[in-house]
Write a protein that binds this DNA or RNA. Sequence first.
DNA 1: AGGACGGCTCAGAAATTCGG
DNA 2: CCGAATTTCTGAGCCGTCCT
Length: 567
Amino acid sequence: HFFGEYVGVGFTASLEDRLDDVARGAAPWRDVLGAFWVPFAGEVRALRGLRTSRVVDVLDATMGVHFFGDDQDALKAKLHVIAATTATDADNTATPFPRLGFDPESLSKSRTCPSCGGGRLGLKLSRAGGFIGCSSYPSCGYARPLSPTTDGTEALEEEVRYPKVLGEDPATGRKVVLLRGPYGAYLQLEAGAQLTHEARAAANDAELLAAAAAHSAETLDIHAINEAGYAALTQGQETDATRPPRVRASSHHPPKETTTKFGLQGANIRAEDVTLELALDLLRYPMVLGLHPEDSGEVTMHAGPFGWYVSHQGFNATLPKKTLRAARNAAVAASRSEADRNGSKREAGASAFAFTEGEKLTLTEEEFMYTGAAGDDGEEDGVKGAERGASRTGKTGKGLSDAWYVGSEKGQMEGYGLSLEARATLLRAQYSPVSLEAAVEVLTKKKLKLAFERERSGNKKQAAKVPSKKRATEEKAAKVARVTKVDKGAKFDKITEAKKVKRKSSAYNLFCSHTRGSLAPGLPSTEQSKLLGALWKALGEEEKSKFETVARVVNDRREAAAAAAAA
DNA sequence: AGGACGGCTCAGAAATTCGG
DNA sequence: CCGAATTTCTGAGCCGTCCT
């Protein structure tokens, strides 16, 4: 519409012909390029005032048939409006190319905004590119990606509309919202209305009651504590062990009203899977797990862009998958036993989650859903497996998109998935906090590992300085043995285990370390190896026997040192 | 299978940047 | 200032080549 001539097939073909003329020497290149450039530059100048919004309008009109299924009549009507206003634009130099006003009624039905019902959908442009948005923006925030839909209805239902209000935190009444930031979806716990003094006092009293109950078996009257004073009540209670927790007046520390955020990307959660319950679970992080037994410093659990980790005194350690899985299973087991105690019906899905990958299990009717993942036989997704007469027993595993399923023994992914409710319960359990003990273990392990590495690199430097290489390796072996005694980490173990039993040095090995230094500096290691191999072969028997003698001595001493260290 | 070597990739975590 | 994304830095682990 703006450069019609230049995108035409004929234009390209004729320009190619003329360029061929230039190549043959039949036409001067200045004339050919000039014939193209002069009018082209003029058109570019003329369109300098063109607004992006106008281009978007025209794209909206012409592409509407693909995005919204606009009918041909609607398209014709719009093009008519474009033609009419283009003429007006040319005369109007003060405000060139004003925004087009399409007649919304001329547009197809699927243009109606599914969110507000009043606005019309259209092509919009953001920093990140094109998208489909509502004409009532900003009062209506509906948006969806630019993708062609045949009937529009199916795609719209799956779409998450931002901001999405998930609900309220029942404890505080603060709003829980799913938002979309520059880097993806994130959860936000809004700064709620300031609590009244009475509400704060009640909350504080409840907190104190809980603390008191945890400390002593007998229930304390919290109001009596406030009136009579802490000191009077604790008279006669001498030791730290019997002293109840410190009591502070409620009005002294009003709760902080800050918004809390949680990014979904790092936790690898899909926005459409987030329920209010899961959101509240996630917004508890960073969470205080407890106090470190050594120094009583807080141990906290966080979600970073790289995954879950625990922190203590500024020292971080990533939580291994094994630890997270253990936390999940513990949480599920706890909810199960609680349900059993209450005599109530077991929470749907709970029984399905107290498993580890590869375990055989039988699903209940509620948990079970046929997903039809394999062998498309025309069966509709979501049909209950029982209705299809399928077995509800199989091995658990993780399929595409990390969705849990129960499949046949051979893992053919017959597709006996978990119901949506069961899936939601599993998701929640997945983000259970780890125990303080587990966190401390992870932290301690990493500290030991770091200490081990520091010592090892320290020895390396020492070995470079001190001429006696043998002494350095002996020290290293001794330290490795020491660390191995206190730690049994997976990868860490591999290192220590490998180093503990030191392989014997061959005469060739000694020759290599002796000669390597005199090779040309900067020679690649593989080339060094080739050269050393050739040199070793070329070495006379007498020379070789010298290295063999040294090797015997070195190995004997190493053996003696290892025996001493073991004793 | 494993030791030696430097270079390389990968992953974890700290440091920095971004946006409201 | 805060939380999240991106960049930067560091160490682990692998590669390939020789011989035992």
